[in-house]
């Protein structure tokens, strides 16, 4: 068993583990972490496949940028929210398993039916231009130049699209300081709001602070974490 085999079997096991973990995790954050784990393992596989440049890009772009973007969005949507794993569409999971297993089996059967393949290796191709990166550059800015240019257009369009989608039109004019002052005075609560809980045993920002009489104050929480009092989790965590 040579080094390549060792690397392959270890990373292959890890990446499949990561993929399965992504699918079965209840919390989205956990899924994201599992995906990042798989991505890193795939990056290692790229290195062993003589694609050093792609391996680096994989780490930088996927685990670095894309997955961070995912986590960023998760922050907004709610890091803590956990999915119910109960299936709501009748028969979806059963049929999906059936299709998945048969599809995977057929792919594997198709791949392995031709028997063992010996890779030619990229030594010649990489050395032709001096190195892997130079070879890729030759291709990208040569034969695939048009695709590259079109990709740039795609990226610009995507950036613009994201901006348009995320943009919110201001419906009312921005409030002035005088208005804010007046509202605060009239709200019956001119002093600063109580701070949320400060004991760092928990995600402190969603634990309400205690009032002098010992009761939790919803007003101390940021808006996304506020509840009308019927939210069990919040109450439970407070009483803990």
């Amino acid at each position: 068993m040579n080094g390549e085999s060792v690397v392959f079997w270890v990373t292959a096991t890890f990446s499949v583990m990561g993929a399965v973990g992504m699918v079965v995790s209840r919390k989205a954050v956990h899924s994201a972490l599992w995906v990042a784990f798989t991505m890193i393992n795939i990056a290692i596989l790229y290195f062993s496949l003589e694609a050093a440049f792609l391996g680096t890009v994989q780490i930088v772009v996927y685990t670095g940028a894309v997955m961070m973007l995912f986590l960023f969005v998760l922050m907004i949507v709610g890091v803590d929210s956990a999915d119910s794993l109960l299936e709501t569409i009748k028969g979806q999971r059963l049929v999906a398993s059936l299709f998945g297993i048969s599809f995977g089996a057929m792919l594997i059967a198709g791949i392995t039916s031709s028997g063992a393949i010996n890779a030619r290796g990229l030594t010649v191709a990489n050395n032709f231009r001096g190195s892997n990166i130079k070879g890729l550059a030759e291709l990208i800015f040569g034969r695939y130049l048009l695709a590259f240019e079109v990709t740039s257009a795609l990226l610009i369009t995507a950036a613009l699209g994201a901006m348009v989608l995320a943009h919110r039109e201001r419906v009312h004019p921005r409030k002035t300081q005088a208005q804010l002052q007046r509202e605060r005075t009239l709200s019956g609560h001119p002093t600063p709001l109580p701070a949320p809980g400060v004991m760092a045993t928990n995600n402190a920002v969603n634990v309400p602070g205690l009032l002098p009489d010992g009761s939790p104050s919803q007003a101390s929480l940021p808006k996304p974490f506020q509840s009308n009092g019927d939210d069990e989790t919040t109450t439970k965590e407070v009483t803990k």
């Binding site: 999906a96 599809f103 792919l107």
Partner: peptide, 24 residues
Amino acid sequence: YTRSYALFIFGGAALIAFVLLLVR
């Protein structure tokens, strides 16, 4: 349901894989 539609697409892909396999 998007997932329902995705299931049909996946089923189609599985079917194509099956046919390709059968031909080969």
